[in-house]
C-alpha cells in the first residue's frame, strides 16, 4: 500500500498503472478506482480556484491508518491513495483511491470505505475562491450525489 501527498497536479491514471505493476498479475482479479477532480461550481456558485490545506505528518498518518484498517477488513492485494494539496485549478485531480483484490466486492467496498473515511477523518481543508475574488472555507463535505 502507498499513500502520497501531491503538491503539484498529478495524473491519477499514471499512478494507477504504476501501482498495478507491483501486484502479481495472476491474482489481481479486480481493481476499483475512484478519481475525484475539482469542479468549477459548488453550492450554486462558480468557483475559480481552490486551496487545499493539510497537517503535514498527521495527514499522512491518518491516511495510512485508514488504509491499514481497510486492509485488515478486506483481502486486498494492493492499495494506492493520493491526495492533492496547495493551489488547485478546475479539472485538476484532487484524490485517487485505487484498490486491488482477487474479487470485485472486496475491491469495490474497500475503495468506497477508504474514500468516505478519508473525507471525514483525514485532516484536509478546502478554501474556495469565487468569481468575484471572495474566498470561503468549505465547512462540510457535500453529500455523495
Amino acid at each position: 500500500m502507498a499513500v502520497e501527498i501531491c503538491h503539484e497536479d498529478f495524473d491519477p491514471w499514471a499512478l494507477v498503472a504504476r501501482a498495478e505493476q507491483a501486484i502479481p498479475a495472476h491474482a489481481r482479479g479486480a481493481a476499483s478506482v475512484f478519481v475525484g477532480r475539482m469542479r468549477d461550481f459548488n453550492e450554486d456558485e462558480d468557483v475559480t480556484a481552490l486551496f487545499l490545506e493539510h497537517y503535514p505528518g498527521m495527514t499522512e498518518r491518518e491516511l495510512e491508518r485508514i488504509v491499514a484498517e481497510a486492509e485488515a477488513r478486506w483481502p486486498l492485494l494492493g492499495c494506492h491513495v493520493a491526495h492533492r494539496v496547495g493551489d488547485v485549478r478546475p479539472g485538476d485531480a484532487l484524490v485517487l483511491v485505487a484498490t486491488w483484490s482477487a474479487h470485485r466486492v472486496a475491491a469495490r467496498d474497500a475503495c468506497s470505505d477508504i474514500l468516505e473515511r478519508l473525507k471525514h477523518e483525514a485532516p484536509f481543508w478546502k478554501r474556495e475562491t469565487l468569481t468575484d475574488g471572495t474566498q470561503r472555507w468549505v465547512e462540510k463535505n457535500t453529500p455523495g450525489f
Binding site: 498518518r61 491526495h83 484524490v95 473525507k119 481543508w125 478546502k126
Partner: peptide, 28 residues
C-alpha cells in the same frame, strides 16, 4: 489532535505535547 492523533476535549495534555485545533475536515 494531540501528538498528531485525533483527540477530544477531554484528552489530557502533558509537557512537550503537540496540540492542534482545527475546523471539521473537508478533504476528498
Amino acid at each position: 489532535a494531540v501528538n498528531q492523533e485525533q483527540a477530544s476535549l477531554d484528552t489530557p495534555v502533558s509537557d512537550g505535547d503537540e496540540v492542534a485545533y482545527f475546523p471539521p475536515v473537508t478533504g476528498g
